[in-house]
Amino acid sequence: MLNIASIKKLQIILILILLINSCSRQPEQKIYKKFRILMDTIITITVVSPSEKEAETAINNAFSVIERLDKSLSSFSPDSDVSKINHSAGIDFVKVSTDTYQLINAAIKSAQISDGAFDPTIGPLVNLWDIADIIKPDAHISPKLPALNKIKEKLMFVNYKDIIVDDHDMSIKLRKKGMAIDLGGIAKGYAADKAVAALKASGIKSGIVSCAGDLKVFGNKPDNSNWLVGIRAPRGKLDDLIAVLSLKDLAVSTSGDYERFFIINGIRYHHILDPKTGYPANGFQSVTLVNEQGIITDGLDTAVFVLGPKKGLELVNKMGLMAYFVYSDGSIYITDNLKKLIVPNDKKN
């Protein structure tokens, strides 16, 4: 039975429906994506924005932040902060940019937390192994192991405690001549943090900054779902994934023995070197860490990889990180706090 009261109710409902409709008629949120080669890798920035112009401005702002960082950290250009620090090793303090200063402090912290398993002064060893150069497609050098006495010699220059930081004028000195810092193990996570901050400052509410193994997502996709991030399968083809994570406002870093490596007599020599032994660390095929900050995930995934399964897990638990391990026999361990972020296989399609 329709009476006056129920007709009024109906009217109110109809008006409400109209109001909701008119409210939701905002400009459509779209995904914009751009990439650029910086920091020796491809960096992809994805943003959600109602206008192409806003998206483009924001992405360019973020890229210029990374570009500035790259200029301070590149060991190729002679006037970068890192080159200057390494050239003045054992001689003098070098005044550095805020970025470099913050990054070196964060690197030292990661080194302290991991008791030197991650060490930013690994430079001399990295240069000795020179894995990046050996595996270049046009390299004419066949892979060769460095001599043991050479490795022992270089190990003497690897110690993060020999980085002297002057907090007053943001300057850095390496204690011994022959030392060299290499921030490759932490710079990309830091870059992702900084680029996300730049995007947010430009008014972007959600997106992804992806620097190869290290990426950071914030906000949601236009349909309000989480971003889906795949973890590469260490022994699969380039596009094989071992898991998919559903993420919001989190950074992910993966260190794998498959990124840069060569094989001699069936033994895989990869680029993640143990600062204590001078040789590639074994125990894992890959270590993926998830946390709010990229500088933490990037700095510590190398450390966990080097520490190996037992001590690595201890560090993960101590720091409350989420982790996805692929051990060297191919088996997998996932921390309980990460399990709920994993997309079940049957829901992916």
């Binding site: 992806s210 997502v217 991030v229 795949g230 973890i231 260490p234 596009d239 994934l241």
Partner: peptide, 16 residues
Amino acid sequence: IKNIKNNHAVIDAISG
């Protein structure tokens, strides 16, 4: 025994 396959159409980014 499961077949863990990939579906890149739905993946937004890859770590590794």
